[in-house]
Design a protein around this nucleic acid. Structure first.
Lengths: 343, 343
DNA sequence: AACCTTGCCGGCAACCTTGCCGGAACATAA
DNA sequence: TTATGTTCCGGCAAGGTTGCCGGCAAGGTT
């Protein structure tokens, strides 16, 4: 009696034990035609007994697909964690395994991750672009191999691929309009790096709201800084030291809103009376600080799920249009930091 | 001239073009002996020209290893995200690719993840056990296949494998002793599920501190509830409705500390004067709320790195002792919520 | 002259699976 | 009878790579 604990059973073992050929066993296991009911039963029962599991490597090699999705993301913060969970959910359901690589917002790391995942023969990619990335050659290499790519959240026009994202402009618009309606007159923006599309769209929404309400755009009130709490802190200190200093701030992320909040407190100013504040993402922390910070909520989990769904569709009809653009909608969550009227 | 864009070049293509055998090409590429300098050069230069990349699937199939680590974690919260980043860091360096699967604290999902990763022929596993898990058969299956396993953070005595964790008892001890030294007399604990080792160790540290300071243990002050903000909120409300209600609370996670904080505020009590509070994990949010919450810091990133390092060591000398236990040390971060003396 | 060493190379099998093709055995129809 | 079809099965190749072994030629040793 063979030891069937280590060295898992193969098709060959089954064939030997039943004195039939490899092909027949293979056919039987796959419910292919050209197998008698009798032998099929025999194969099935023996395969159960031996706990046969098809070898994924051999299968992948043969069929030229690994059932693996390469996911490249800049980090694992709150927003992206939720999105990854969404991707995971759908991918698992569809029989795919997910390989998640973090670029840590580093361009070089992103290239390395791409290479590794290509070498690992991922069937395709779901990508959120690092903020440092300005060249996209490494992603083009994926498409050169004719592998499907879906970009999500941090998308870029330099990569023609189906995409899933938030309506960032709408988010920027509703945040800004809300501040305007609360009576704030000089609204500043803390934006992200200048090449970050996600930031620019939100900024665009800001401009659009000003325009609608006939407020003159003041370039001095637009600050670009790193997507990060400390930079936002210093940028806000700077803003609040201006002669004509703003009476409200819209930050394009909650991390930056936190930084701004700390700077506002440092300056001894009160929210929402002296200054209004609205963030973006609706991270749980915004509801916990004092004053609670208003923020634009985005459906992270749903965006992740949508990205994975879109990937799988693209996978199945390879020649699908690269112009599909799925856009999800934000929702303003109003809290104390911007409620001037009720203050 | 062949098109060497899609259908990546193989060893066979090189052999054909140079009119030599597959074996020779293989040897040349691997810098094996038995190849003349001349042919080696030829092979090398042609392989560069064709942008040859060895096919990982074929390699894995041949060598029976995939250079892939299966990572199973309960979720991607702040703590685990940091740890995963640490794992990623070390694994990448060592030439491994990481497959991260979240169990979402679900037992069934954990089993499914394990199966999937086993099917994907991961070379081994790095595991943090879900809080729901009480049976460990699915993990035993990994060890039956003689694959290395390292457990981290949420470890369990039911799985004999090398482990990396925080000195949780010390963490519980220092939090409790700090509260005692601040003059709190009746210190309650919000613990996690009763089968969660990580929670029990912290609880043990709590008991140890009481004992050292000759404070009688009151079972009514120990509450077990789900590892989660809402449950902690209600549990705290309950605590604060007791006749002999506590004057301090130690929660074994920051999520729970937040829940407790909300309940304390709801009751109209003041921290740290009416009641003291210490959390665990030192998530950024603890420093942002009002009052800022004292918390026990754990070196998440380092724990992740240590786990991956230990995995790779275990990998290399398969027969290593399963008793290796790497323990990292916590550090108490004191903030307003527990500073009775300066209040 | 017979032998051994050394350097270089190719053939074959193996890893595990599937797809294509051909073939044997038997049954049915013209 | 011959032709045609049906049912079931095995052989072979392929996917890309490496390890083992054998072989051949050139050179050196007795």
């Amino acid at each position: 009696m063979a030891n069937h604990m280590d060295n898992p059973a193969t098709i060959k073992d089954i064939a030997k034990r039943l004195n039939i050929s490899l092909s027949t066993v293979s056919r039987a296991l796959r419910n292919a035609p050209d197998v008698s009911e009798e032998t099929r039963q025999a194969v099935m029962s023996l395969s159960q007994e031996l706990n046969y599991q098809p070898n994924r490597l051999a299968l992948s090699l043969r069929q030229n697909q690994t059932h693996t999705i390469g996911v490249i993301i800049p980090n694992l913060d709150y927003v992206l964690s939720q999105m990854v969970r969404g991707i995971d959910e759908v991918a698992l359901e569809a029989g795919y395994t997910v390989m998640v690589c973090q670029s840590n917002e580093s361009f070089g790391r992103e290239i390395l991750n791409t290479q590794r995942l290509l070498e690992s023969l991922a069937d395709g990619f779901i990508i959120s672009v690092s903020s440092e990335t300005k060249s996209f050659e490494h992603f083009k290499k994926i498409q050169d191999r004719n592998l499907p790519v879906v970009v999500f959240d941090r998308i870029t026009p330099h990569l023609s691929a189906p995409s899933v994202r938030l309506d960032n402009q709408a988010g920027g618009f509703m945040a800004t309009e809300h501040l305007i309606e609360q009576g704030y007159k000089k609204i500043a923006v803390l934006a992200g790096p200048e090449n970050l599309g996600i930031s620019n769209s939100r900024l665009e929404g800001y401009k659009q709201a000003l325009k609608k309400h006939k407020i003159k755009l003041d370039q001095d009130l637009i600050l670009h800084c790193d997507f990060n709490q400390d930079y936002a802190y210093y940028a806000t200190l700077e803003l609040l030291s201006m002669k004509k200093k703003p009476d409200a701030i819209f930050t394009i992320s909650d991390r930056m809103a936190i930084g701004a909040m700390l700077a506002i407190k440092k300056k001894g100013l009160q929210m929402p009376t002296d200054i209004g504040l609205v963030g973006f993402n609706n991270e749980p922390v915004t509801g916990l600080v004092t004053p609670a910070i208003s923020s634009v909520e985005m459906p992270c989990f749903e965006i992740g799920k949508a990205a994975a769904k879109l990937f799988i569709e693209t996978m199945h009809n390879k020649e699908s249009a690269t112009t599909i653009e799925k856009i999800l909608h934000p929702k303003l969550i109003v809290r104390e930091s911007s409620l001037k009227f009720s203050a």
